[in-house]
């Protein structure tokens, strides 16, 4: 019984980890950059929804949509104004995105102040199914996350833009030669990444806490997941996200609660030692 409860909790958490990591893996694959500012879009998503729900009194659906659309637009701007010029210089990208993340954190403190914020859950209560407890808020967030992930997968598989994105990720040179506007795809992918990070935050902010530095921990986890999954592999990323969540919840119950993060990184290091390219990194690309 305990095991079932733990696995279910882990799966619910895993869906949200997958959503967070998905954007990062797309950006990484398509742009070949280490974007240290990825967590910022998560933070922004949470603050936007806080602003729309608490300050302006919007309902959470409208607030959520506005938040992710804003994050998308900011992603477009950042790519165009900041990243485009330095995209080929890995070191500059890392420094700039890191500085940008810090600067934005300061801006958030300036605009919204530094106190911790919380959002009310939009699904209240708990389901009890034969002794297994399911928090409705986590269920709803998980369901929306899964829908978003499936939409992204379909989009990659079926649409012209999605295919072009995969092509750029797998074979940039070839993408240029068939006439794909690689820079445009990169810009849009970056914005889609921002959109996904923000949507994870919209789904998680009623569960967690909203504060300026909230984006760093998901950034770290997303990087761990992406590396475990094999850089840029969508399938690997999704599997690694669920693996992370399950490792966390199971190891904290059966081994030691303070080891939940350590266990994941131990697994990560072991996988990297055995398979340097990650679980699904044997071939490149999305």
């Amino acid at each position: 019984m305990a095991f079932i409860q733990l696995v279910i909790s882990g799966v619910l958490q895993g869906g949200l980890y997958a959503l967070i990591a998905l954007g990062l893996t797309l950006t990484l694959g398509v742009m070949r950059i280490t974007d240290l500012s990825y967590g910022v879009y998560y933070t922004l998503g949470a603050y936007f929804s806080f602003f729309f729900i608490i300050k302006l009194g919007f309902n959470f659906v409208l607030a959520g949509i506005l938040s992710v659309v804003l994050a998308f637009l900011i992603g477009l701007l950042v790519e165009r104004l900041l990243l485009r010029r330095i995209i080929s210089d890995e070191l500059s990208v890392m420094i700039l995105t890191f500085a940008f993340a810090y600067a934005l954190e300061e801006i958030i403190v300036f605009v919204w102040g530094s106190p911790f914020r919380t959002l009310p859950p939009y699904a209240i209560g708990t389901l009890n199914i034969g002794g297994i407890l399911l928090e409705k808020q986590r269920l709803v967030s998980f369901a929306v996350a899964v829908v978003l992930i499936v939409l992204v997968l379909l989009f990659l598989k079926k649409t012209r833009f999605g295919k072009a994105l995969r092509m750029v990720s797998q074979q940039q040179h070839g993408a240029y030669l068939v006439g794909i506007d690689v820079q445009l795809i990169q810009r849009l992918t970056f914005a889609v990444g921002s959109f996904l990070a923000a949507s994870a935050a919209v789904l998680l902010s009623p569960i967690y806490l909203v504060y300026p530095a909230m984006g760093w921990s998901p950034l770290l986890k997303a990087f761990g997941i992406v590396i475990l999954g094999g850089m840029g592999s969508v399938k690997g990323t999704i599997i690694a996200a669920f693996a992370l969540a399950l490792i966390e919840v199971l190891s904290s119950y059966y081994i030691n609660q303070s080891l939940s993060q350590v266990s994941f990184f131990v697994v990560l290091i072991l996988v990297i030692l055995i398979r340097p390219s990650g679980l699904f990194g044997n071939r490149e690309g999305v």
């Binding site: 733990l6 967690y208 986890k221 119950y253 939940s260």
Partner: peptide
């Protein structure tokens, strides 16, 4: 007693314990 990670967000294990 339980000592959870400062970045933890999911506490099923703690609550069950």
């Amino acid at each position: 007693e339980a000592y959870v990670d400062t970045s933890a967000t999911e506490f099923t294990a703690t609550i069950m314990d």
